[in-house]
C-alpha cells in the first residue's frame, strides 16, 4: 500500500491538519509503511466473525433523563482562547 503526496494532502484536509509542504514526503512514506503493516490483516478470513467493540461486550448503559451536572459555563470559558457574552469567538463564517 503506497500513498502519494496528493493522498496525504487529502487526508490532512479531511482531518483539518495543517502540515508543511516539506514534510509531505516523510508522511507519505511513514503512512505507507504503517498501512503495509496493517495489510497483514488481509491474510485472515474473517467472514462470519462478529466485530468486537467492547472487551466485555457490554452495551451502552442507559439512565433516566435527568439533569445531573450543573451549568459551569463561566468557569469553562475562562480557559477559552476568545469569548464574548458567553459565546466562543471564531473568525467570521458568514459575510
Amino acid at each position: 500500500m503506497s500513498l502519494g503526496p496528493d493522498e496525504v494532502k487529502k487526508i490532512a484536509h479531511l482531518a483539518r491538519l495543517g502540515i508543511n509542504e516539506s514534510d509531505i514526503d516523510d508522511y507519505a512514506s511513514n503512512l505507507s509503511n504503517i498501512l503495509d503493516l496493517v495489510a497483514q490483516m488481509n491474510s485472515i478470513d474473517t467472514r462470519n466473525v462478529p466485530p468486537m467493540a467492547h472487551p466485555q461486550d457490554v452495551g451502552q448503559r442507559l439512565r433516566a433523563d435527568e439533569v445531573l451536572e450543573e451549568n459551569q459555563r463561566d468557569r469553562f470559558q475562562k480557559i477559552a482562547p476568545q469569548t464574548e457574552n458567553g459565546l466562543y469567538l471564531v473568525p467570521k463564517v458568514i459575510e
Binding site: A12, A15, L17, G18, N20, D23, L31, I34
Partner: peptide, 16 residues
C-alpha cells in the same frame, strides 16, 4: 491550530 499544536507522531496517527 491543529497543525502547530500537535507533534509529528500524533499527526501521523490522526491521519492513519
Amino acid at each position: 491550530s491543529r497543525g502547530e499544536g500537535f507533534g509529528t507522531e500524533v499527526k501521523r496517527r490522526i491521519m492513519v
